[in-house]
């Protein structure tokens, strides 16, 4: 652990370290704002002199706080996964949503919602069946993508996006069929889940998710150096002592786990994984010792802010948070394509 820590400081510049600290401060601030504002108005500061009413305390600790924390963790997860995939594929357009990984997770999740009654009895683990099948779905899609794009070198970009379109369409069909054959109760579950939101989460469900996602993120930080070397090309990285097969497996599995869990808890939230790593590269550089942790922080900031917007824009109703991230992300995506064309 201390080795990782030392390396981190070796490879980042003073400017990058400053950005890292600034992002941390902004994240703490925005989390504070996130738990202070909502359709139910009261002063959060009252928490500190213990003068909250029971209802206010309930809203703060069991509604807003888990929601904001989940938003931060999911934002970090999606951005981290985007940064890792962009590094692995050496392709700036890789994003768990765009290339179909989220859709795979969604299909897996939908499958478990619609089929759980048929195949699994109501036992204790059922709440965790959903994240688990979402992880399987996303791992499956990433493996397919890898088989399709390997060996295509720099042309992999087009192939991967086309494959993503196909996979997204296929997942759409799958979810459609599952919706069609579901009974009323399952349909209800499926519909609520597909709309995607951070609302209605409970500590029991998100605590294991947070632990798994955060530990996966920290574990993934170890591969920063290898991801840097991979940018020279696979054979070059191999010659520098990187076990390419293991690296691929590590990235694919960690992305599948964090995207799978995120999607299973919140539905599909697009473009975060695409936009955030690009922003972070624009701020201060491209090396992964800087890029990975700062992407996680920026993703968390962006997601908590989007969730905040989704709650306050049309109070007391709520916009789906995926709508907001896509509204920010899709023009950014167009700009990215435009810029690449002009290069």
């Amino acid at each position: 652990m201390s080795k990782t820590f030392n390396r981190f400081f070796r490879y980042i510049t003073f400017k990058q370290f400053t950005i890292f600290n600034l992002l941390t401060i902004i994240l703490i601030f925005i989390i504070g704002v996130g738990i202070s504002i909502g359709s139910f108005e009261f002063s959060v500061l009252k928490y500190f002199n213990n003068s909250l009413t029971t209802l206010e305390k309930e809203v703060l600790m069991n509604i807003r706080f888990p929601r904001v924390i989940l938003a931060a963790v999911v934002g970090a997860a999606l951005s981290m996964s985007g940064a890792c995939l962009q590094g692995l594929f050496r392709n700036p357009l890789a994003d768990p949503g765009l290339i179909g990984v989220s859709a795979g997770a969604a299909l897996g999740a939908a499958f478990s919602i619609a089929m759980s009654a048929e195949f699994f009895p109501d036992f204790l683990l059922t709440p965790y069946l959903l994240p688990f099948s979402a992880i399987l779905g996303s791992a499956f899609v990433i493996s397919i993508l890898f088989i399709i794009t390997r060996g295509f070198g720099f042309e992999g970009m087009t192939y991967m996006l086309l494959a993503g379109i196909a996979i997204n369409a296929f997942a759409g069909v799958g979810i459609g069929i599952l919706t069609y054959i579901s009974d009323d109760a399952e349909l209800r579950g499926l519909t609520f889940w597909t709309m995607g939101s951070f609302g209605g989460v409970t500590w029991t469900l998100i605590i294991p998710a947070i632990i798994i996602i955060l530990s996966t993120i920290i574990w993934t930080l170890r591969i920063s150096r290898k991801l840097d070397l991979l940018q020279l090309g696979e054979s070059e990285a191999y010659r520098l002592g990187v076990d390419i097969k293991k690296l691929r497996f590590d990235i694919i599995m960690s992305s599948a786990i964090i995207v799978g869990i995120s999607v299973s808890l919140t539905g599909m939230i697009g473009f975060v994984g695409l936009v955030v790593p690009h922003l972070v590269r624009l701020f201060g550089g491209v090396n992964h010792h800087y890029l990975l942790p700062c992407s996680a922080l920026t993703g968390a900031i962006l997601m908590v802010s989007s969730d905040l917007l989704s709650r306050i824009l049309i109070q007391p109703a709520e916009l789906p948070v995926g709508l907001i991230t896509s509204a920010i992300g899709s023009p950014f995506f167009l700009w990215l394509i435009f810029r690449m064309r002009n290069k």
Partner: peptide, 22 residues
């Protein structure tokens, strides 16, 4: 493969890097 990296280095013909490294 780690020990190999310590006893020989290889310069190949490829040289493209996508991201903006210094």
């Amino acid at each position: 493969i780690i020990d190999r990296a310590r006893i020989r280095s290889v310069m190949s013909q490829s040289q493209e890097i996508i991201y903006d490294f210094s």
